[in-house]
Simulated assay, not measured.
Amino acid sequence: MKSITIHNLDGPLEAMIEEKARAEGLSLNKTVKLLLREALGLAPGGNGGRKADFAEFSGVWSEADRRQFEKKTEDLRRVDPRDWQ
């Protein structure tokens, strides 16, 4: 397995990583690996669940909402042959 070195971490980032490691009882190395896995969607709670991360901003439609949308946009799905002449 490859090792990497990260140079010149700014103070706030270093402090946040150390704080997370302390809170979770992990080494700095394990904490950084966990953060990378989460950020890349390789671990639960990371980007793998990205949809859930944005649900509050995009909303979730109920079946009734979907039916209402389909009904109100029905005419947009009809093709008028005159438009293609």
Rank of each mutant, 00 (worst) to 15 (best):
K30L: 11
R66G: 11
D75G: 13
E74T: 09
L9H: 03
P12S: 12
L28V: 12
A21H: 08
H7T: 13
P12Y: 10
L26E: 09
N29Q: 07
L40T: 06
T31Y: 03
L26T: 07
S3P: 00
D75T: 14
G11D: 14
S27I: 08
I6N: 05
T5N: 10
K71V: 13
P81N: 06
F57R: 01
K20P: 07
G11M: 04
F57I: 03
E24Y: 01
A64Q: 09
V79N: 12
K30P: 00
L36C: 08
A39I: 01
E70H: 12
R50Y: 05
S27L: 04
D53P: 00
S58A: 02
W61G: 03
S3D: 10
S58P: 00
R50S: 01
G48Q: 08
E18S: 12
G48L: 07
D80K: 05
F54A: 01
S58W: 03
K51Y: 07
F57K: 07
V60F: 02
R77P: 08
H7W: 11
D80Y: 01
E56L: 04
S27A: 01
W84R: 11
N29H: 09
E19N: 14
D80A: 02
K72R: 15
R22D: 15
F54I: 06
E63D: 11
E18A: 13
G59C: 05
S62E: 09
G45P: 05
N8M: 11
I17E: 09
G59F: 03
D10Y: 10
S62P: 03
E24L: 06
L36S: 11
L34P: 06
G46L: 04
M16E: 15
V32C: 09
L28S: 07
G48S: 05
A64V: 07
E14K: 15
A39K: 00
L36E: 05
N8Q: 12
L76Y: 14
K30D: 15
L13V: 10
L76R: 15
E19S: 15
E63A: 12
R77I: 08
G25E: 08
Q85D: 15
E38I: 00
H7M: 12
L26I: 00
I4L: 10
K20R: 13
I4R: 11
P44E: 09
H7C: 01
G45C: 01
L34F: 02
L13S: 14
D10T: 09
G25C: 06
T73Q: 07
A55G: 03
F57D: 02
L28R: 15
K30F: 00
M1N: 10
E38K: 04
E74W: 08
I6V: 07
G46N: 05
I17L: 04
L42K: 12
R78V: 15
T5Y: 04
G25V: 04
A55Y: 02
T31D: 08
T5M: 05
E38G: 02
E19I: 09
W61A: 13
I6K: 07
E63Q: 12
K2D: 10
W84T: 04
M1C: 01
